[in-house]
């Protein structure tokens, strides 16, 4: 097994990916500050607009990082350059998985934590917390799905298709959640009320995310050639 035998190179590849997207990340960061500032203007319209923009930002960051870091590597033929380095196909795949997760999970966690902080510290009912967490986890799961597609196929077409499908499903998911009595009845509660339904959904979301990532890792490890 070659897995992790080449950790120094994996680190360098992740670092390289970070350098490649740091401009985009800086732009997202500035956008995030702007959105928080908008929400801070404390009118219901701006607050809701800000929340929608936050979700959009979360989706955009994921989509951009999967395209920029994975699909474009093949499209722009920089993959050949990477292959010439002292790495195996597995090292490279691990580095890609690591870089993407790192570069997405960090902003994702910041945004989720930021939103929760906003909800806790503002007059917004804390009862929306389960909804916010579930939607965030769904977005993370969607991200993992199209990241897996990108990593396994390197195809822009398939990846975009999965992005579109998951984003459509997100709307359906939110409506489905809101129709569930276990969710919508507690939305205006003063505290976050987790019940068996929302906890089950959370567990399912997290479980599926882990499953998708593990499957990707296993399938990647089976690859014997780069191309």
């Amino acid at each position: 097994m070659h897995t992790f035998s080449n950790s120094q190179m994996i680190k360098l590849l992740i670092l390289k990916d970070w350098q490649l997207v740091k401009k985009s990340l800086a732009a997202y960061l500035a956008g995030g500050v702007l959105i928080i500032g908008l929400m801070g203007m404390a009118t219901p319209l701006l607050f809701n607009t800000g929340a929608i923009l936050m979700i959009t930002l979360m989706i955009v960051i994921g989509a951009r990082s999967a395209i920029e870091l994975v699909v474009n590597e093949k499209k722009d033929q920089t993959l050949t350059f990477m292959m010439s380095l002292p790495v195996t196909a597995q090292d490279y795949a691990w580095a890609k998985l690591g870089a993407n997760l790192l570069l997405y999970l960090v902003p994702w966690l910041l945004l989720v934590a930021g939103m929760l902080l906003v909800i806790v510290s503002s007059p917004v009912y804390n009862g929306v917390i389960p909804l916010v967490v579930l939607v965030s986890v769904f977005i993370l799961l969607s991200y993992c799905c199209y990241l897996a597609t990108a990593l396994l196929t390197y195809s822009e077409g398939y990846t975009t298709a999965v992005m579109i499908v998951t984003n459509l499903l997100l709307n359906g998911f939110i409506i489905w959640l809101l129709r569930m009595p276990a969710i919508h009845l507690t939305l205006e509660a003063p505290t976050a009320s987790w019940n068996s339904t929302s906890l089950l959904l959370l567990a399912a979301g997290v479980g599926l995310t882990v499953l998708v990532l593990l499957t990707t890792a296993v399938l990647q490890n089976r690859k014997t050639s780069f191309l």
Partner: peptide, 22 residues
């Protein structure tokens, strides 16, 4: 042993591209 080997092999090809933004 491709990892060790590739430390000593220099490879360039016509379909190899560098990162445009850098």
């Amino acid at each position: 042993q491709q990892v060790q080997a590739k430390y000593d092999i220099g490879f360039a090809s016509d379909d190899m591209r560098l990162y445009k933004s850098q």
